[in-house]
Simulated assay, not measured.
Amino acid sequence: MSNTKDHGHSSNQKQPPQPPHAEQAKSLIVQQKIGSLSTQSKKHPGWPFGSVMPYSLDDTGNPVFLISSMAMHTQNLKSDSRSSLLVMEDKSSDDPLSIGRVTLMGETELVDKENIPEVKNGYLEQHPDATFWVDFPDFSFYRMRINNLYFVGGFGRMDWVTGPDYYQAESDPLIEVANDIIEHMNEDHENAMILIAKHHDQNDKAESLTAAQMTAVDRLGFHLQLTSEDGLTGVRINFPKSAQSANSVRKLLVQMVTEARKELN
């Protein structure tokens, strides 16, 4: 598991706090547009049936689907509304098990007619191509009411989240800019990340660092994949204070680099 410590503290300190699992799950679901829907097979009772499923979210965070009455999953849902939706981070990795994912479990039912305009607008914002078939008579909107979900943020970071906790959670304020921050840091500021990592964990292993890649960032901190003589390791480093925007992340990272240079030099 990743070596996680408080920013600027010694290695025997407790792991730095991360956003609650409910917040991380909400952020992941908000970022993505496609998942895998599993329903209870009507044709083969007792067997799960998986389908690729585009989705949007309503105002409370419930997934909304636009599906044809002819589809197998629609027929399954009419028979048994219990279903699950697997959503994964959309990023490449040599190890898919290291990618964040969440499985939502709930009951998926037809959207009431009076609520169709609201969910239709939200769905078409996420999936504009659906404009061509949204009004076909065999297509209808379905909505999943979430009972529970299981969040996996990577190795060793996993837990159940209740429906109420998910609904109350807010998504991370950096989700719209996180990928840009990660790309910018990895392309232009690897030396700065190595410096921060050395300051974060001042020992002989840290001195042998040769490369650093940011793999995730949120309002409280970021994850680095570090390369040294001993191979690859992961570390969580927190910001001195919560970040609410790309600009605040930039200022905090500049502050951390300045502190690292001062102490290490």
Rank of each mutant, 00 (worst) to 15 (best):
L66K: 00
S81V: 11
Y167L: 09
S98Y: 07
D188F: 15
K5G: 10
F65N: 01
K205V: 07
S27T: 15
G156D: 07
W47L: 12
H7F: 14
V249R: 14
L28E: 06
Y166S: 00
H199R: 04
T103Q: 13
R250W: 00
G154I: 08
L37K: 03
S36D: 02
L110N: 01
E229D: 12
R157N: 05
E118F: 14
P63E: 02
E176V: 10
D201E: 11
L37R: 02
H223Q: 10
K14A: 15
E187Y: 07
L224M: 06
L224I: 06
Q244R: 13
E170M: 12
F132E: 14
G8T: 01
P117Q: 04
L174S: 00
S93L: 03
E107G: 12
S248V: 13
L264K: 12
T4R: 09
S84V: 01
A211E: 12
S83C: 09
T74F: 06
D172N: 05
T74L: 05
I34S: 07
D218H: 06
T162W: 00
I34C: 09
V257R: 15
E187R: 13
N265L: 14
K43G: 07
A197D: 06
S79W: 11
S36I: 02
Q168M: 14
R82Q: 11
Q225A: 06
L252N: 08
E125S: 12
D165E: 12
Q24C: 06
Y167V: 08
S228M: 07
V102Q: 05
K78N: 06
G153C: 03
E125D: 12
K91C: 13
S36Y: 04
I146D: 01
S10T: 11
T108P: 02
H199G: 06
S208R: 11
L220W: 02
S68E: 05
G163P: 10
V257N: 13
S68C: 08
M144T: 03
T227D: 09
